[in-house]
Amino acid sequence: MVSQQQQQEYRLHELGDFLRTRRARLTPEEVGLPRGNRRKTPGLRRAEVAQLVGVSVDWYTWLEQGRSISPSTQVLERLVQALHLDVNERSHLFLLAHQQPPPALSQEPEVVSPTLQHFLDHFGYRPAFVSGRQWDILAWNDAGCAVFGDFRLKTTRERNTVWSLFVDSASRQFVVDWEEDARRILAQFRSSCGRHLGDPQLTELIHELMHYSPEFRAWWPDHEVLGAQEVKKTLNHPQVGYLVFERLTFQVLDTPDFKTTVYTPLDEADTPRKLEHLLEQWYQQEGQKPHTPKAALGLPQVQRLEQDTVALWLAECCQKVEGAWVANNTIMTSYTLWCEANRYEPKKAKGISQSLATHGLEIGVNKRVLDEHHRRKMTRGVRGIVIL
């Protein structure tokens, strides 16, 4: 059995190795230092990193050697800057050094990627939205607007989940068992606030909630905390009456401060039919056609492996364009959601690749693309199609 001391030694060894690999990939010119004449190995020297961070060479050497020292948050942040670490590397550094995630970068703009928006859009008749670190709803799908109102017409405060629940008087009629739901949301909100202590926008939001909501003012000092839960949610919609859902919230791995919430309709209270009616009204109002076939609503999952689902997906969702390129993860997301919407059993990644090759597409094509942090990375994809 691995002892606590062995775990500590392994963690510090990993930290030292990580720092060595990060400085090895940089050149002096990239960090604004002169190259010099007697450089035998690539990358920065320890003395150069120590100079950039503002610590002694001995101290930095001990850190790379896995000595039991505790770098402060300020020193780690200077290491992030000196070694040009991206957001994922920053998180890894803090987990190795402090055994906890880094402080949130509160000033970073919260931008929902096109891929994540595409993911929301293909939930079809299930309302879904993405919220950020202050619980502002940042992106949504059509079903979300059909059930919860047009998010485009709401102010930032009105799109805040906690604010709308506690301050908007209409929520007390809209949410069945309002107090139970409000207490649960408040406890989850309190848990997430622990990651963003001192965030000025969160502090302002809490002060306003304390002022405008007697319930928030009474319950906030209780310090109840709760993680995300799968719960049954009943709404009393002003147009169609009761709607019953399963509500699931999960974290977006690429952007940990983002939470995706999906409302899956249950058969109770004739929810699927009512939801279809609301969404049809929404599309009529918008002058659009539904993104998802009606067959996607309320039908059981069936196994239909004999169908060439990749060919059907290509015909409905894609267009062949010579020289075009699409990343594998984008293809997998679009294809899987299409299968789910049409109640097909999706193929595994290997089967998808084989089918794409059968249809004359070039698979396994590497391309350098910019990630969300504007850094170039090599990504594998398929050449010859675009996803509509």
Rank of each mutant, 00 (worst) to 15 (best):
P256W: 06
L93M: 02
H92W: 04
L356H: 10
R159H: 11
Q281P: 00
Q51A: 06
F129Q: 03
Y242V: 08
R22N: 03
D121F: 03
D222R: 05
L305G: 10
G36R: 12
L312E: 15
E180I: 02
D86C: 05
V262K: 12
K377Q: 15
F94A: 09
E268M: 02
E246A: 02
P200Q: 05
W313K: 05
L15G: 09
T27G: 06
E180T: 07
T264M: 15
Y335C: 06
E246S: 14
K154M: 10
L120T: 02
L44Q: 06
P300S: 14
D17R: 09
D181C: 14
A295T: 11
T41P: 02
G32T: 07
E372V: 10
L153D: 11
T379R: 13
I363R: 13
W178P: 05
G241Y: 05
K377L: 14
Q288H: 09
V244K: 07
C339M: 12
N88T: 14
S334K: 03
H118V: 00
Q229D: 15
Q134L: 14
L253P: 07
L83D: 02
T249N: 05
H122A: 07
I363Q: 13
L33G: 03
I137G: 00
P103Y: 05
L63C: 10
Q107A: 15
L116H: 03
R273N: 13
A349H: 12
D150N: 11
K294D: 13
E77P: 01
P34F: 04
E362D: 11
Q288P: 01
D86W: 07
T309E: 10
A47V: 07
G124W: 02
A139Y: 00
L209H: 01
T41R: 06
F174H: 02
V231D: 13
V31K: 11
A47C: 04
L305K: 13
G360Q: 04
G351V: 12
R304L: 10
R195I: 00
P71I: 11
L153Y: 04
V225R: 11
P238M: 06
A47D: 12
T255K: 09
K232Y: 07
V87P: 04
T156K: 09
G241K: 08
A315V: 06
E286G: 06
H118A: 13
R375N: 08
H291F: 14
E372P: 04
G198M: 09
P272E: 12
D150H: 12
V53L: 02
A50I: 09
I69P: 05
S70D: 11
R46P: 03
A143F: 00
K274A: 11
E179G: 02
F216E: 00
R304K: 04
